[in-house]
Simulated scan of single mutants.
Amino acid sequence: MAQVNGINGLNNYATQLRKVTGLDNSDQTVKGAGKTFGDYLDHALSGLNSSMKVMDQSTTDMISGKQDDLGQVMINMTESQLTLQTAVQVRNKALEAYNDLKNMQF
């Protein structure tokens, strides 16, 4: 890792870090062309939906005898359970934040 000397070195390091993590917006021609919160939420909900479909299909296949790997079915069930629990917790936090904003007095 290169040494960071002065403010220019820090800015260069931050720019390189943004490029590596994919958070660099310098190549966008239109301001605001990045993803919005709604895009991230839509992506998360579609991931939840696909996880639940995979779990449902693997359970159905296990019951009908098309699949004989119980371990994979349990992994799919656990994965979808954790995804659903995460979605519920995010929803709870969003509702809590909304209620806090609603109850603020100006």
Rank of each mutant, 00 (worst) to 15 (best):
M1P: 15
M1I: 03
A2S: 09
Q3S: 08
V4Y: 03
G6N: 07
I7G: 09
N8M: 08
N8S: 13
N8F: 01
N11E: 11
Q16L: 07
V20A: 08
V20L: 08
G22C: 06
L23I: 02
D24K: 03
K31C: 05
G32H: 04
G34F: 09
G34K: 11
K35R: 10
T36C: 05
F37Q: 07
H43G: 12
A44L: 06
A44S: 10
L45N: 11
L45T: 02
S46Q: 05
L48G: 05
L48E: 02
N49Y: 07
N49M: 05
S50G: 08
S50N: 14
S51A: 12
M52E: 11
M52K: 15
K53Q: 14
K53G: 05
M55Y: 06
D56C: 04
S58Q: 12
T60E: 14
S64E: 05
K66L: 06
K66C: 00
Q72G: 07
N76D: 10
M77F: 03
M77C: 08
T78Y: 05
T78C: 03
T78W: 03
L82R: 12
T83A: 12
T83K: 15
V88H: 15
N92V: 01
N92C: 05
K93M: 14
L95H: 05
E96C: 07
A97W: 00
K102C: 00
M104T: 06
Q105C: 07
